[in-house]
């Protein structure tokens, strides 16, 4: 018990005195996951919106696929991205394996289906409500996409936050494609896994606390947004 208490105080000390290694890891985590979410947003939101308003063959199949991909096990994603990027893989010449870029790619694969599927849901609901009015105003199907995305903005930010939450807390994919290399690809989750197994609980605990803090902050932001949406009558209910 004594030991545990001293680990906690050591962890607190690490956080409070601004330990350089600790913060380098935190910053890399944030950089990787934020970039991944940004890229996922650029792919997933137009894709989701297209699925919501477009009427083309195979649309239903894509939706089912997207919903299935939402629950993709991160280790499997890690494995697939590893195979793509490994020296003998199709993208091997790019030499991206064990770099932050590889981790971003893996997280993009994980987060994009979430963003696309949630965008599809929200935009489809809104499109149903808006469709006649927009047609009446002469807005074409294609031109209605930015209108719908903008008017669904609060729900979409919530979807992005959900994607960010999944990305930053994920360990299985980034450890496979990143390799958990010190000062290069070591992020919060992979460091926690490694340091815990090494018995260096202080660093693991400090990172764990920060990770929880980020999760709480993201969730607080989500509920704040939905509260605002309700107050402004912007919610979809």
């Amino acid at each position: 018990m004594q030991n545990f208490a001293s680990e906690i105080s050591a962890a607190l000390l690490l956080i409070l005195k601004g330990d350089a290694e600790l913060w380098a890891i935190v910053l890399l985590s944030l950089r990787v996951s934020l970039l991944a979410v940004l890229i996922s947003a650029m792919i997933g939101m137009p894709l989701g919106a297209a699925l919501a308003v477009g009427r083309f063959r195979g649309r239903r199949a894509v939706i089912v696929l997207l919903n299935a991909l939402m629950g993709l096990p991160p280790v499997v994603v890690g494995l697939l991205v590893y195979l793509m990027l490994s020296r003998s893989g199709p993208l091997g010449v790019l030499q991206l394996l064990y770099t932050p870029t590889a981790m971003i790619i893996a997280q993009v694969v994980l987060v994009t289906p979430i963003v696309a599927a949630l965008t599809r849901q929200v935009v489809e609901m809104l499109a149903e409500e808006y469709s006649e009015q927009l047609r009446s105003l002469g807005v074409s199907c294609l031109a209605s996409v930015p209108v719908l995305l903008w008017d669904a903005r609060l729900a979409l930010v919530t979807a992005l936050l959900a994607g960010f939450g999944r990305a930053i807390a994920e360990v299985g994919a980034v450890i496979i494609v990143g390799g958990n290399i010190n000062h290069v690809t070591r992020v919060m989750t992979t460091t926690i896994a490694l340091e815990t197994s090494k018995g260096n609980l202080a660093l693991a605990l400090a990172l764990g606390a920060i990770l929880i803090g980020i999760a709480v902050a993201v969730n607080a932001l989500v509920s704040l947004l939905s509260l605002r949406a309700e107050q402004e009558g912007l919610s979809h209910a």
């Binding site: 409500e129 808006y130 006649e132 009015q133 009446s136 105003l137 002469g138 807005v139 209108v147 903008w150 008017d151 669904a152 402004e232 009558g233 912007l234």
Partner: peptide
């Protein structure tokens, strides 16, 4: 059709401010 406008039985307003709802049409 562009010379016609319709107000529906249940008004459908954009999830924006009052001003932005009017601005939307004027921009177009």
């Amino acid at each position: 059709k562009a010379r016609q406008a319709m107000v529906f039985q249940r008004p459908v307003l954009l999830r924006r401010t009052v001003t932005a709802n009017l601005d939307f049409v004027l921009r177009r």
